[in-house]
Deep mutational scan, measured.
Amino acid sequence: KSIMKVYCQICRKGDNEELLLLCDGCDKGCHTYCHRPKITTIPDGDWFCPACIAKA
């Protein structure tokens, strides 16, 4: 079994998992407080990182 360690693409830390959003496009993580602008609430439904939005 392989366990994927998810970490924030900005701060490179994997702590505060409850505030770590996973992109529905690329599965990369980003803390709500590292994202600019900050994300104050966990979004309902799908969330896409800035890189995936730029590709769309």
Rank of each mutant, 00 (worst) to 15 (best):
K1I: 04
K1L: 01
K1N: 07
K1Q: 09
K1W: 01
K1S: 05
S2E: 14
S2Y: 02
S2K: 08
S2L: 09
S2M: 04
I3A: 13
I3P: 09
I3H: 06
I3K: 15
I3M: 08
I3R: 07
I3C: 07
M4K: 07
M4Y: 04
M4H: 12
M4A: 03
M4N: 05
M4P: 05
M4E: 05
K5Q: 07
K5W: 03
K5S: 12
K5Y: 05
V6A: 07
V6D: 12
V6I: 09
V6P: 06
V6W: 03
V6E: 08
V6Q: 11
V6K: 15
Y7D: 15
Y7V: 06
Y7A: 08
Y7I: 05
Y7C: 07
Y7N: 14
C8G: 00
C8V: 00
C8F: 00
C8Q: 01
C8M: 01
C8S: 00
C8P: 01
Q9S: 15
Q9A: 08
Q9D: 14
Q9I: 06
Q9W: 05
Q9P: 13
Q9R: 05
Q9N: 11
Q9V: 06
I10C: 15
I10A: 07
I10F: 05
I10S: 10
I10G: 06
I10V: 10
I10T: 12
C11E: 01
C11F: 00
C11S: 00
C11R: 00
C11H: 00
C11T: 00
C11I: 00
R12Y: 05
R12I: 13
R12H: 05
R12S: 14
R12T: 11
R12Q: 11
R12P: 00
K13Y: 03
K13I: 07
K13V: 07
K13A: 11
G14R: 13
G14F: 07
G14H: 10
G14S: 14
G14C: 05
G14W: 08
G14E: 09
G14A: 13
D15F: 07
D15P: 03
D15Q: 04
D15C: 07
D15G: 08
D15R: 03
N16T: 12
N16Q: 13
N16W: 05
N16S: 12
N16R: 13
E17P: 15
E17Q: 15
E17D: 11
E17K: 15
E17L: 12
E18Y: 05
E18L: 08
E18H: 14
E18R: 10
L19Q: 15
L19T: 08
L19A: 12
L19E: 12
L19C: 09
L19Y: 10
L19K: 12
L19V: 12
L20S: 03
L20M: 12
L20W: 02
L20F: 14
L20T: 08
L20C: 12
L21M: 09
L21E: 03
L21F: 03
L21T: 11
L22K: 15
L22A: 14
L22M: 10
L22Q: 09
L22I: 10
L22H: 11
C23F: 02
D24W: 09
D24S: 14
D24Q: 15
G25H: 07
G25S: 06
G25T: 08
G25F: 03
G25E: 12
G25M: 09
G25P: 02
C26G: 01
C26V: 01
C26I: 01
C26P: 01
C26L: 01
C26N: 01
D27H: 03
D27N: 08
D27Y: 09
D27G: 13
D27Q: 06
D27S: 08
D27A: 07
D27W: 09
D27T: 09
K28T: 11
K28S: 08
K28Y: 11
K28D: 10
K28Q: 15
K28G: 12
K28W: 13
G29L: 06
G29S: 12
G29K: 10
G29M: 03
G29D: 02
C30L: 10
C30R: 12
C30K: 09
C30V: 09
C30E: 14
C30M: 15
C30H: 12
C30Y: 13
H31M: 01
H31C: 02
H31W: 00
H31L: 00
H31V: 01
H31T: 02
H31Q: 01
H31G: 02
H31A: 01
T32S: 14
T32H: 07
T32M: 10
T32Q: 07
T32L: 13
T32A: 10
Y33H: 07
Y33M: 11
Y33A: 08
Y33V: 05
Y33F: 06
Y33K: 07
C34W: 00
C34A: 01
C34M: 01
C34R: 01
C34H: 04
C34I: 00
C34K: 01
H35G: 08
H35S: 08
H35D: 13
H35T: 11
H35L: 14
H35V: 10
H35Q: 08
H35W: 05
R36F: 06
R36G: 12
R36P: 09
R36M: 14
R36L: 14
P37L: 05
P37W: 03
P37F: 03
P37A: 10
P37V: 04
P37T: 06
P37N: 06
K38R: 07
K38W: 04
K38N: 06
K38V: 08
K38M: 08
I39R: 07
I39C: 13
I39W: 07
I39E: 14
T40G: 08
T40H: 07
T40F: 12
T40M: 12
T40A: 06
T40V: 10
T40R: 11
T40I: 07
T41I: 10
T41A: 07
T41L: 05
T41S: 08
T41E: 13
T41G: 13
T41C: 08
T41P: 15
I42D: 04
I42Q: 05
I42V: 11
I42P: 11
I42M: 14
I42F: 12
P43D: 09
P43L: 06
P43Q: 13
P43I: 15
D44S: 11
D44C: 14
D44A: 07
D44N: 15
D44Y: 04
D44L: 09
G45E: 02
G45M: 02
G45Q: 15
G45R: 13
G45K: 02
D46H: 07
D46I: 03
D46M: 04
D46T: 08
D46A: 06
D46N: 12
D46F: 03
W47H: 05
W47Y: 06
W47A: 05
W47D: 06
W47E: 03
W47Q: 05
W47N: 05
F48L: 10
F48M: 12
F48E: 11
F48D: 05
F48H: 11
F48S: 14
C49D: 04
C49I: 00
C49Q: 00
C49Y: 00
C49L: 00
C49H: 03
C49M: 00
C49R: 00
C49E: 02
P50G: 04
A51H: 04
A51N: 10
A51C: 07
A51F: 02
C52V: 00
C52F: 01
C52E: 01
C52N: 02
C52G: 02
C52M: 02
C52K: 02
I53F: 09
I53H: 09
I53V: 12
I53T: 04
I53G: 11
I53E: 13
I53N: 04
A54I: 03
A54P: 14
A54R: 04
A54M: 03
A54H: 06
A54L: 14
K55V: 12
K55Q: 05
K55L: 00
K55T: 15
K55R: 00
A56Q: 05
A56C: 04
A56D: 12
A56M: 03
A56L: 02
